[in-house]
Write a protein that binds this DNA or RNA. Structure first.
Lengths: 150, 150
DNA sequence: TATTGTTATACTCTATAACTATA
DNA sequence: TATAGTTATAGAGTATAACAATA
């Protein structure tokens, strides 16, 4: 019976779940927060991206930043040049290996980087529609999908 | 009791769910499939992106493509130039409005665009770890998070 | 000899503005 | 006058290759 309308196939549901995961992950709020910082500071996308990957405390070698960003080290040179010109970071020489230069955020750089990094890690407001139990269930299912963690 | 270890806070779980959604959505398989096509054809990212948004059957005005891609129409001109040079698409004039040109994929363009579009819509293999019921639950929770659909 | 960072250079992505043809 | 597409141009992201200093 009810031959005309069939129950949703699991393949369809999987495709829908996948589409929604991609859709939700493109949170306009992240965009908006980044844009706000770019507008306030006049920074362009490259240096902004660097701010996302720089540690708020301590330091990181140039090489470490290119690894985190997944880009060439020559690009990091120009990125850190810009950050230094804006007074957001500076280079220091490595204490034991003099080939290495490490990047350290300034006070202002740390404030900005904090804002940018928070924009990327703060869940969108839409999550409040879920009950605590639903959040737990969702998290559990996502863990199964991505067992390696992160 | 058990004062030392506390149960995971719902905020922590929300943050974790958000992080995992972003992580899962960056499926390396999509990258890989796109890269394969780029390597085979020598196409760069711009024309590849156009292939993602072009209809496999029928046609689309230049203006429609810039709207779908969210880019300026002047950029579409150069993108479709490239597609035409490679024999993947051609322009036709609109039957009633002679200002408009529509884009039509060639046979080869359709094959390529199909591969690219499938790469973007096919769920990663990891989804097979979930039971049918789990997929349904996941989909249901994601619908709540993103009620507008897509 | 291998590695870190820099420089010079070039390619790709993409927008803005001015322009042409058509509505 | 408003709209579709094109052209010229420029800026921003990013890589490659050659190079200097250090290990």
């Amino acid at each position: 019976m009810t031959a005309g309308i069939s129950a949703p196939d699991v393949d369809d549901l999987t495709a829908e779940a996948w589409r929604r995961i991609r859709s939700i992950s493109e949170d306009p709020g992240v965009e908006a927060a980044s844009h706000r910082v770019m507008h306030e500071t006049g920074l362009t996308g490259g240096p902004m991206k660097a701010l996302r990957f720089l540690p708020l405390t301590g330091s990181l070698p140039m090489r470490g930043l290119s690894a985190r960003m997944g880009c060439d080290h020559s690009y990091v040179t120009s990125l850190v040049d810009t950050l230094e010109e804006r007074g957001l970071a500076h280079r220091e020489s490595h204490p034991t290996d003099r080939r290495v230069k490490v990047i350290v955020l300034t006070e202002e750089g740390r404030r900005l980087a904090g804002r940018v990094q928070r924009a990327y890690t703060t869940p969108p407001a839409t999550f409040t529609v879920l009950s605590d139990a639903e959040v737990a269930t969702l998290c559990d299912l996502l863990r199964k999908l991505d067992p390696a963690g992160d």
